[in-house]
Every structure is written in C-alpha cells, then in structure tokens.
Design a protein around this nucleic acid. Structure first.
Lengths: 154, 154
DNA sequence: TTGACAAATACGTATCAATCCTATTTAATA
DNA sequence: TATTAAATAGGATTGATACGTATTTGTCAA
C-alpha cells in the first residue's frame, strides 16, 4: 500500500559521506526514528521519542539534524500552515491532505506527480525540487465536529 | 494577468456581518493591507506596515483578525515550511511556487485546479476546502547562489 | 593504532512568533 | 442614547527555533 522509498542503512551512510557528513549515533537515531514514523513529526516529537532510548540527545541536535537531512535531500520538510516544522522520510513523489482541525497529514499517490502539467514559464523561471498536491480541509474524524466548532467570532 | 477575486468593501462588510463579525477600523485596515499586498505576508509584516498609519493597532489584533478572516473564508493561510504563518488575500484557485532560499511565494494558475483528478477514496474520506499545487525549489534570483551555499554540513 | 583536527553535540541562553489575560473601549441594536 | 456583548491594546507567557561555546567524537592520515 505504502511502499516507501526505503533508504537502507548502507545507503544512508553513503549519502551522508557523499555530502561530508559524519555518521554519528545521533544522526542514525534521528533518521531511524523519522523513517519509522507515520505521522510527519516535528523535531520536538522525534526528540521526545528518542529520549527514552538515548537520554542524552538534545532537542537542538535533533532539530539541526533534521534540517541537515532535508538540505541534503534524504528527507523532506512538509508544508504546514504556520505550525511547527514537520518532516517526512518518504521521498517518493506523493501528495498530502492536511486536516485543518487536528493537523494530521494524510498521504496519497494518485495522480502521478510526473503527469501534472506545469507551465513552461514556471519550469524555466524556477529550479523545481518539490512538486506536490496540497489538499486541506477536514478529515473524517474531524469534519462533523468542525461544523459545530466553526461558530462565533474572534 | 492576475485578475484577483476582488472583494469590494461592500462585500467585505456583508461577509463579516453574515458571520456576526463587527466592522471595526482595525479589521478594515487589516483586510485592505492584505488585499493590497503581493507578498503573502505574515501577521507581523502587516502589523509593521499598518503601524505607520494606525499607530495604536496591536500585533495581537492583526494576528487574531487574520486568523478570523481565514476561518470565515475571506482569506487563506498559505502553506509554508515551518516559517511564520502567512496569508493570501487571493481566494481564486491558484498554485504556489515556494523558494526555499528567500521564502518568497510566487503564484501561477495553470493547470486548472478543477481539472486535477483526486481519487474518490480521498474525496469521500475528507471534506476538501483547499486544493493547490505546491512547488518548491529555487527562484531565478536564488538558484545560482543556492548551488554555492548548499555546501558543507550542519 | 594512534594523534590531530575539523565537525558535531549538549546545554544554557537568546530570539521570535503566537497566544493568553484582563481592563478598557467600541460597534451594533433597540 | 443607553445597553451589552464583542473587540482591542498591551503586557505577560508559552513554545519553537536558533545561537554561543565548551566539550566530545568521527575521520583520516601517519
């Protein structure tokens, strides 16, 4: 169903070294934690999780590491609406649905991102590294409550 | 080129009243400032701009007002990558290119959002209120620098 | 295997965004 | 014009992220 673009430990090592990054226990732990996560977590969430098995790891390191990984392209930063930065280990082309109520992000694959037409004006003017359909609204769990909550003012 | 879905002052008033919102000088100022902006600004940016002509307006009010407007659907929150929340007065269906270097957001219209196929599984499972193609990468101005900057580690 | 060094980490601190609290003001309405 | 609920200002708080720095640690070459 969700055959992710798995990056093996070996490939992880090679990708890091190719970019001059040292292989540290922290980096391995952060990458593994993200890879095994299904919820597009924030740095803080990953840190909270890792601290159980890696008590000395600092939030700063987790955050820096994730940003570094995103920069060298082994993970992605996902689009949000002003909430804490979140990450995605799945670099296979896919799309997102973002729930405005619970902030969960759901993946889907159809349509094929390759097939989506981008005007030449855009492809010429920009170097495009990410292409994704971003849907927003209310997930099945939230949509009924949302109707009630979307009431008064302020 | 960019024929926005203009909301007249009159329509603005009606939309607010329909949702039980009072028409205050602050709300008018915030809405006008956003409508005249071309840069998908943050609350802070709008506030900094308004303070010149409306010295007593508070950041809290600007922020609250923008969020309120988004909730009643007269403006949009735009997707970002962990940066401060930003807003878009243009509710006409359109797409975004996000520059990872300078964080500018560029609009484009092709392809027609109505024509993009979303799997039924998704349309059934969620109430979709926003649909947008999100491109990211480097804008014309940044892409050459980016190649140089994307160097070492950390 | 070890020594040297640049890179990475931990952690305290600083900064900035966003929200909350509450006294005061104000738009709407009758 | 008086009433009232809603909205505002502005200070305080919280939370996310980045920074500064002393220390530790991979890496690589001798």
């Amino acid at each position: 169903m969700n055959k992710k673009q798995e990056i093996t430990a070996d490939r992880f090592t090679r990708l890091c070294k190719a970019r001059g990054l040292k292989i540290t226990p922290q980096r391995i732990a952060v990458y593994e934690a993200l890879k095994n996560s299904k919820e597009h977590p924030s740095a803080d969430r990953i840190h909270k999780q890792l601290v159980h098995t890696f008590p000395s790891i600092s939030l700063d390191t987790v955050n820096r590491t994730l940003i570094t990984f995103a920069r060298i392209g082994i993970i992605d930063v996902v689009e949000g609406q002003g909430d804490p930065r979140r990450f995605d280990p799945n670099r296979e082309a896919h799309h997102h649905f973002y729930c405005l109520s619970c902030n969960k992000i759901f993946d889907f694959h159809d349509p094929d991102p390759e097939q989506i037409h981008i005007p030449e004006q855009i492809t010429q003017m920009f170097t495009i590294t990410g292409k994704r359909l971003c849907l927003s609204g209310y997930c099945n769990h939230c949509r009924y409550q949302a109707a009630e909550t979307a009431t008064p003012a302020n």
